[in-house]
Each structure stands twice: as C-alpha cells, then as structure tokens.
C-alpha cells in the first residue's frame, strides 16, 4: 500500500536524520554544557562593583574573576545550586539578581502580577462605564415617533406584506 506523500525512501531519510540528531545531541550538550551553565549562573549573579549589572554582563575585573571562579567550580563538579549557595554565603542574598521564592520575597514576585491584574480590572471598569454612559443618553435622547410617520410606516409594512 502506498500512502500519498510518504515513500519508503522519505521515511528512511527521516529516520536517519532523527538517529544522527539522537547520537549528536549528548556530545554537543556536554561540550557546550559547562560554558552554557557558567553563563547562566553568571547571569543570575549581581556584579558587586556595578550598578544593576549581572556578573555575566559586566566587563569589570571583579565580574571576570567571578565568572572564572564559577567555571572552575563547575569543572570541579560543583552543582549550580552549590555555587549559588557559595555566593550567597559570602555576599548574602543581595548577590542574587532574582530573590529566592520564599517568605517576604514573594511580595517582589507577586506584586507586579497583582498590579497588572488590578490595572486590567480598572481598565475594564472604565471601559464598561464609558460604554454604558454612551449608550444610555442615546436611548434617552431618541425623540418620540411622529404619529404621521407611524401611520405611514404601518401602511408601508402592510403594502410590503409584513
């Protein structure tokens, strides 16, 4: 049976591509893994000598030394969590650009969403109010139907068989 659009050759080609990708992925991941992990960790750490820059973004010497230390710790088999904990033990939670999701820190995480929801609610209320206001006067301002036109409308409707 031949399914239109699918040939044995195309199926085999697809399987070959999947197999090659499957074999290549772990090698590539381990090669770039360490550097990528170091960059991700550096992006989470606040540069101590800069204003609002991460260790990953800062060109300062101290940030450079911190990036090197992160790489070294990863090479020695320390996990990202252990490295984060090391920097927090030295600089306090201040070193983390994103506060940990615990205790009072939840305010920083939830407040923006609360503000967005509140803003959406206010906009919704304002829009609803302005729509109902613009409708109400129009209905109120409609003049009563002139009796002459009312009788003519009735005549026309009869004529058109309505």
């Amino acid at each position: 049976m031949r399914v239109p659009g699918f040939t044995v050759r195309s199926v085999l080609q697809s399987l070959l591509i999947v197999a090659v990708l499957w074999a290549w992925w772990p090698c590539a991941a381990s090669a770039v893994g360490l550097e990528e992990q170091a960059q991700l960790l550096a992006a989470e750490l606040r540069c101590p000598v800069c204003q609002n820059l991460s260790v990953g973004d800062s060109p300062s010497e101290m940030a450079n030394q911190m990036r090197e230390l992160v790489r070294e710790k990863l090479k020695h088999g320390e996990s990202p969590e252990q490295i984060r904990a090391y920097f927090v033990s030295r600089y306090g939670e201040w070193i983390l650009l994103a506060p940990k999701r615990q205790g009072f820190n939840w305010v920083a995480w939830l407040l923006p969403f609360g503000a967005i929801l509140g803003g959406v609610g206010v906009i919704g209320l304002v829009v609803r109010r302005s729509v109902s206001r613009s409708r109400a006067p129009r209905e109120a301002q409609l003049p009563p139907l002139d009796p002459r036109y009312a009788s003519r409308l009735q005549a026309e409707l009869k004529e058109w068989g309505q």
């Binding site: 101590p48 000598v49 010497e61 101290m62 030394q65 911190m66 230390l69 030295r90 600089y91 306090g92």
Partner: peptide, 12 residues
Amino acid sequence: QGRMSIDYGVYG
C-alpha cells in the same frame, strides 16, 4: 585571581 576578595564577599 580575586579568590580571597570573593571569599570575603568584598564589593569595593
């Protein structure tokens, strides 16, 4: 290498 500064949490 800045190891000691980082170990002591020096920021300036």
